[in-house]
Simulated assay, not measured.
Amino acid sequence: MAALDNFTADDGATIAFRFDGAADQPVLILSNSIATDHSMWDGQIGSFARHFRVLRYDMRGHGDSSAPNGAYSLDRLGRDVLELMDGLGIPQAHFLGLSLGGYVGQWLGVHAPGRVLRLVLSNTAPHLGPAAVIDEKIAALNGGAPMADFADAFLANWFPRELLERDPKTTERFRRMILRTPPHGLAGAFAVVRDADLRRLLPLIDRPTLVIGGAHDTVTLAEHSEQIAAAIPGARLAMLPSVHLPNVEMPVPYEDAVLGFLLESCQPRP
């Protein structure tokens, strides 16, 4: 895998990123879920990079990006994307975020709509709780709880049992991703999930939006995807028979849904 480049945000944190695809194509930014890194999208690059200049990055607290101590905010995660775009000279881009990355996508749609061409919000929610449950996870991470326990829980929530049993290579790849996430970085990201509430702001999003949900998702429920699609004017909903990471569980239908939506904007008008 090619080495990642680094960008320094205005608070001194470094954000690791990489490009795939031809430089003359429109930019598509991919944003990772909690406890993963940019490589969660590896399976999609062959398909997406045929049409787009794909920009992937490791969200702060994850992968090769900085993991500052303390609680992160959704505003900070959103500004990381805007600063990265500014630093790379990208005035506008399509944006696809999954789970926590979908929170970032919602924030961008509300606070920086002029920077977003088309928005894909995958397996995400406008609000999750209860806060006390998330606080328990943060306290456990800060208290030295084994990351292996978190890895087991994440994997059980992300994938169907059948995939975990038949595809140990994928299971171990994502387990390694989780285990290399700094505990304090994961705790900081959990604070974003605890504190974010976009429910009243969703109707402000005026970008063309596709919402992708998992009918069997136990993390961000199907009803969360339905709620987002109903609140954003003109949004479309694609519900897949998946759990939480449909890009891994059923990549072909997932890529078809994303590309079918994004490439509409690239078709010539009649």
Rank of each mutant, 00 (worst) to 15 (best):
A2E: 14
D11C: 02
G12H: 05
A13L: 00
T14A: 13
A16K: 07
Q25S: 15
Q25N: 12
V27G: 00
V27S: 07
L28I: 01
L30T: 08
I34N: 01
I34L: 14
A35M: 01
M40G: 00
M40K: 04
G43Y: 11
G43D: 08
I45S: 06
G46A: 09
F48P: 08
R53C: 10
V54E: 13
L55Q: 05
Y57K: 04
D58C: 12
H62L: 01
H62R: 01
G63N: 02
G63S: 04
S65P: 08
G70S: 03
A71T: 10
Y72N: 02
R76I: 03
L77T: 10
G78V: 04
V81F: 09
L82F: 08
E83H: 12
D86V: 03
P91W: 08
A93I: 07
L98G: 07
G101F: 00
G101V: 06
V104C: 10
Q106A: 09
W107N: 13
W107H: 15
L108F: 14
G109S: 03
G109L: 11
V110L: 13
H111T: 06
H111A: 11
L117A: 14
L119F: 12
V120S: 10
L121W: 08
L121N: 07
P126G: 11
E136Q: 15
A140Q: 15
A140R: 15
L141G: 12
L141S: 05
M147W: 05
M147D: 11
F150V: 12
A151H: 01
D152Y: 06
A153K: 14
R161M: 13
L163M: 15
R166I: 06
D167W: 09
T171E: 14
R173L: 12
R173V: 01
F174E: 11
P182S: 09
P183Y: 04
H184L: 00
G185A: 01
G185Y: 02
A187M: 11
G188M: 00
F190N: 09
V193T: 10
D195Q: 09
R199H: 03
L202G: 04
P203T: 03
V211I: 08
H216K: 14
T220I: 04
L221G: 02
A222F: 01
H224T: 05
Q227G: 04
A229G: 05
A229S: 15
A229P: 11
A230L: 04
A231I: 12
I232S: 00
P233V: 08
G234H: 06
R236P: 01
L237N: 08
L237T: 06
A238M: 06
M239L: 13
L245W: 09
P246C: 04
V252M: 11
P253G: 07
Y254E: 11
A257L: 02
L259H: 14
G260P: 13
L262F: 09
L263C: 11
E264V: 00
C266F: 11
P270G: 02
